[in-house]
Design a protein around this nucleic acid. Structure first.
Length: 201
DNA sequence: TAAATGATTGGCT
DNA sequence: GCCAATCATTTAA
């Protein structure tokens, strides 16, 4: 069930971002397990992507995590208050990553409600990268953690979406990345209410 | 050492 | 729809 370490070595990060839709992201915190189906992702294409923190080969304390071999978590603080969770992919020294932007609550919904202080029936509980991470209890202490460990991992539950249900669109919040801002590297499940806006074709 | 800024969200109008 | 909140990280001096 748990994805094998080899899965994350895929050097086609855009294809991986699409493939991660329907996979199930788990966290176990203080023995409490929660999980959600990944329904929205974005690909960050290593050193050639102006929207990536690793653009141009920039290598700092923060981005060092992305240079790891695929299969670890990259979590960083954005706008001073949101923890964004990414899956590091590809081989060592090739800083590709996939941002998980939304999940559909599957297990441990009571824990999510407690962490988000809202009912799981509200789409906003895990819609958007900051919200999805918070619902699962992910914070910066998860940065660099191995995705094949027992604190955070991803499973394949044989959930597949058809090509008609998967939509590719430009990424969100990266207007500063100029021409790269228009690349259709955001993928989401059409009609799923947990997908952040814009969520229409 | 200091200044600038962002892969956003939620509350208010 | 608009806008404030809030700080780690980066870059420049």
């Amino acid at each position: 069930m748990k994805l094998s370490p080899a899965y994350y070595l895929n050097e086609d990060v855009v294809g991986l971002a699409k493939d991660l839709l329907g996979k199930v992201l788990f966290t176990k915190i203080n023995g409490q397990i929660s999980a959600g189906i990944i329904v929205e992702t974005e690909a960050y294409f290593g050193i050639k992507d102006k929207a990536s923190h690793a653009y141009g080969g920039r290598r700092t304390n923060r981005t060092e995590t992305m240079y790891s071999q695929g299969g670890v978590a990259y979590v960083y603080l954005c706008y001073g208050m949101h923890n964004l969770f990414n899956v590091v992919s590809s081989v060592k020294d090739d800083p590709h990553a996939v941002l998980v932007r939304a999940i559909e609550p599957l297990l441990g919904k009571a824990f999510m409600e407690e962490r988000r202080n809202m009912l799981v029936t509200k789409a906003a509980i895990s819609s958007g990268p900051g919200s999805a991470a918070k619902a699962l209890g992910i914070d910066r202490s998860f940065n660099s953690k191995d995705l094949s460990g027992d604190e955070i991992w991803i499973e394949d539950h044989q959930i597949y979406y058809s090509d008609e249900e998967i939509v590719a669109s430009p990424r969100v919040g990266i207007a500063y990345a100029q021409e790269h801002a228009l690349l259709p590297w955001r993928f989401f499940v059409l009609g799923n209410k947990y997908v952040s806006k814009p969520n229409k074709v």
